Amino acid sequence: MKTNPGRFFEDYTLGEVIQHAVPRTLAEGERALYHALYPARHALYSSDDFAGACGLEGSPLDDLIAFHTVFGKTVPDISLNAVANLGYGDGRWLAPVYPGDTLRSESQVIGLKQNSNGKSGVVYVRTRGINQRGEAVLEYVRWVMVRKNRDTAAPETVIPDLPKIVTPDRLVVPEGLDFSDYDFTLAGEPHRWGDYAIGEQIDHIDGVTVEEAEHMLATRLWQNTAKVHFDATNREDGRRLIYGGHVISLARALSFNGLANAQMIVALNAGAHANPCFAGDTVRAWSEVLDKAETSAPGVGAIRLRLVAVKHGAAPFALRGEDGKYDPSVLLDLDYWALIPT
């Protein structure tokens, strides 16, 4: 058999390392397409001059371009037969990615748990994105519910013990980053690290209605081959599921309105795709300030944010009901650290 049906739950072994196929060289085209797909406007990722004034060699590619590229490489081996991508944790951006860099991905299976129905199970993997110099630029853990294809005995249950957050001492600030002479006018907003209070909630106001064409283009761009995003016959309702990363990028771009100076994503503490997103849904977003921390880089602070994406019509700052479950309008609940001028 020469074709690849994808892995099923019983095909994973605890501790195995999977080298994912097809490295990807990124160019300015990825930046242009990213900005065409999402209302992304953060200055550090838009202007070489702005980035140079902040101590970098030029404007990096958006942190989420790196994430989507690394993630996409893993799909044929990890989530081609997924029922759902359940969550993320312990993620760190370790180095900026620039046009011309080539990224590849590798994952290690760090946990397995068969579901009680015996028809699926949860696979936990730690994935690393590696550039052409062999340097890790990104690492994160995700867990995925994957179908079983054979009636096999359940493996020993191993659930990895992950930190609840990436502590500030583990944040990696890019070498040379300096916000001492940060230009707030060019960045688009005057708000700095000290202007945000822990517990503050920010409604980002704007919305984007998701179209079939754009999410299909985005998913192909990241070479994400998961069947649920392409094949309308793969789901009983005949609808194509929007790639969760598409929602992440939409929400992050919308957060510019109120968080224009939260420039670089440096850590992913936790994340959940709470409810499915489909074409025709209008995505809005709000953020909550969870924590703040100082860094050793000049003029650079860290801010921990909860980013929530919701469907149009959601109650203000909707998150969970009285039963503790996510409100049906909530699409994404993402906890991350970003770098912001002090």
Results as ranks from 00 to 15, higher is better:
Ala251Phe: 06
Thr167Ala: 09
Gly245Cys: 02
Leu221Asn: 14
Pro190Ser: 11
Phe278Ala: 00
Tyr182Trp: 09
Phe278Arg: 00
Leu250Asp: 02
Val210Gln: 07
Ala267Phe: 11
Ile202Cys: 11
Gly194Ser: 01
Ala187Ile: 02
Ser180Lys: 05
Asp183Asn: 12
His229Trp: 05
Phe256Ile: 04
Leu250Gly: 00
Pro168Ala: 06
Asp195Lys: 11
Gly199Met: 08
Ala213Pro: 15
Tyr182Glu: 11
Ala272Cys: 14
Asn261Val: 07
Lys227Ser: 14
His246Lys: 09
Gly188Lys: 05
Val208Asp: 05
Leu254Ile: 08
Arg240Trp: 02
Ile205Thr: 14
Cys277Pro: 00
Asn269Cys: 04
Asn234Ala: 15
Leu217Thr: 13
Val166Arg: 12
Leu217Ile: 09
His273Lys: 06
Asp169Leu: 05
Phe278His: 05
Thr233His: 02
Ile165Glu: 10
Asp231Trp: 08
Leu241Gln: 07
Thr219Cys: 00
Lys292Arg: 12
Pro174Arg: 03
Ile265Trp: 10
Asp237Tyr: 07
Asp291Cys: 04
Tyr182Arg: 12
Leu171Asn: 04
Ala279Asn: 11
Leu171Met: 01
Thr282Pro: 03
Leu268Glu: 00
Tyr182Asn: 05
Arg239Thr: 04
Met264Arg: 11
Arg192Asp: 01
Gly244Asn: 06
Ala197Lys: 11
Arg220Val: 08
Arg252Pro: 10
Val173Met: 00
Ala267Cys: 10
Leu250Arg: 00
Asp181Glu: 13
Ala274Ser: 12
Ala251Arg: 08
Thr219Asn: 04
Leu217Met: 12
Leu259Arg: 10
Glu294Thr: 15
Gly258Tyr: 09
Ile242Arg: 05
Gln201Asn: 10
Tyr243Pro: 06
Leu250Pro: 00
His215Pro: 08
Pro174Ile: 02
Tyr182Phe: 06
His204Ala: 03
Asp206Phe: 10
His229Thr: 01
His273Trp: 13
Val208Ala: 05
Asp291Ser: 13
Gly244Thr: 10
Ser249Gly: 09
Gln223Thr: 14
Gly199Trp: 06
Asn224Arg: 03
Ala251Met: 12
His229Asn: 03
Gly199His: 06
Glu189Gly: 07
Met264Trp: 12
Leu259Phe: 10
Glu288Ala: 08
Met264Cys: 10
Ala226Met: 13
Tyr243Met: 10
Ala187Ser: 14
Val247Tyr: 04
Ile202Ala: 07
Asp231Lys: 12
Ala218Gly: 12
Gln263Met: 05
Asp169Trp: 03
Asn269Ala: 08
Gly194Phe: 01
Phe230His: 15
Gly194Ile: 00
Ala272Met: 14
Gly271His: 03
Glu214Gln: 13
Gly238Glu: 00
Asp281Gln: 04
His273Arg: 09
Ala279Met: 09
Glu211Cys: 07
Val208Lys: 02
Ala262Asn: 14
Phe278Asp: 01
Val266Lys: 10
Gly271Gln: 08
Lys227Ala: 15
Tyr196Phe: 13
Phe179Ser: 03
Ala279Ile: 02
His229Arg: 04
Glu214Lys: 15
Thr219Ser: 01
His204Ile: 01
Trp286Gln: 15
Asp181Pro: 02
Gln201Lys: 11
Phe278Cys: 11
His215Leu: 15
Asp237Met: 06
Ala274Pro: 07
Arg220Pro: 00
Val266Tyr: 09
Arg235Ser: 10
Val208Tyr: 02
Gly258Ile: 06
Asn257Tyr: 05
Trp222Val: 03
Ile205Phe: 09
Met216Gln: 14
Arg284Phe: 07
Thr167Ser: 13
Asn269Thr: 04
Tyr243Glu: 13
